[in-house]
């Protein structure tokens, strides 16, 4: 059992949890993930590590309530409660080196996994330019945390309610067009955002890393459900990644595979909400 040490709301349906997992907290690195299971009937949820505190044994995770399990976690798991399983760290850590000037892009929930990478890049002596993007002001989080580890921070919202109106790829293009020497780009977020950013950096020949969140079961190399096509070869996001060379990733395949269970996910949410309503009525 793993106790929830703290829980706070970062935005609508976006919550940050610090969960007690001392093994992971001791060795977890930027770019790696854990698999979490709420209870006996739960699915294995892969979540990228945001922060590890070896002293308290706490592992910080940011969860967006998009499906049944994440919604249930938000509704029913409070500070002091425990989740059944946390396994990790899984996957390969980000390759942190002194590259020079680097750009870190976080779109939507991708801001959370970007944070430890930006922090590690900064600590390694890089000049770090951060670009954060969200659909709207209320969905933006961690601006302060990123500001603390970036030399320069650009904030974009799709609707212009905060920062500049536009997409992260617009800010990325402006920087590359300006002619600044960028050694490497990290782009983490929805598959479509990573695809667009990857297209921009390809034009300018800037090496780019993306973190792929394909559908996983075990997260340890055993099911192959998370396979992605990289440079024409099937790779497992869980053990060969989750980070890959963006210019070699088949994003269309990734998006198609991510959608495969949409129907079942909707059905699970519906069944969950119906159960919630019944519970509410009997109370």
């Amino acid at each position: 059992m793993h106790r929830i040490l703290s829980k706070r709301t970062l935005g609508p349906k976006i919550r940050e949890y610090v969960i007690e997992a001392p093994d992971v907290a001791k060795v977890g690195k930027a770019g790696q993930f854990v698999v979490l299971r709420l209870h006996e009937r739960g699915e294995r949820i892969p979540l990228t590590i945001v922060e590890c505190d070896p002293q308290t044994g706490g592992v910080t995770l940011v969860v967006q309530e998009v499906g049944k399990s994440t919604q249930e976690m938000g509704d029913r798991f409070q500070e002091g409660d425990s989740v059944l399983d946390v396994a990790g760290p899984l996957g390969l850590p980000s390759e942190i080196e002194r590259y020079g000037t680097v750009i870190g892009i976080g779109g939507g929930l991708g801001i959370a996994p970007l944070y430890p990478i930006a922090r590690a890049l900064k600590a390694a002596g890089n000049e770090v330019i951060g670009i954060l993007g969200a659909r709207s002001r209320d969905l933006l989080f961690y601006e302060d945390r990123l500001a603390a580890v970036c030399d320069e921070l650009h904030v974009m919202t799709d609707d212009g309610t905060y920062g500049r109106k536009g997409f992260v790829s617009d800010a990325l293009r402006e920087i590359l067009v300006s002619g600044r020497a960028i050694a490497r780009v990290w782009a983490i977020g929805p598959a479509i955002m990573m695809k667009v950013c990857s297209g921009v950096t390809r034009e300018f020949g800037v090496p780019t890393v993306v973190s792929l969140n394909s559908v996983m079961i075990d997260g340890t190399g055993m099911c192959g459900g998370c396979r992605v096509q990289v440079a024409g070869e099937a790779k497992f996001a869980c053990v060969d990644g989750p980070e890959f060379d963006a210019h070699k990733v088949d994003f269309d395949l990734l998006m198609s595979r991510q959608r495969f269970y949409a129907e079942e996910e909707a059905c699970a949410v519906e069944a969950y909400l119906a159960a919630q309503r019944r519970e509410g009525e009997t109370k």
Binding site: R41, E43, R44, I217, G224, G225, F260, E264, C267
Partner: peptide, 28 residues
């Protein structure tokens, strides 16, 4: 890599370990 092409490991793990045959009572 088309959707619907499973490794036996995935097909069996979903069913045996995660009890997908009891979905949505079980989450997988």
């Amino acid at each position: 890599n088309l959707n619907g092409v499973y490794s036996a490991n995935e097909f069996l793990t979903r069913t045996n370990l995660m009890r997908a045959y009891l979905f949505p009572e079980y989450d997988t």
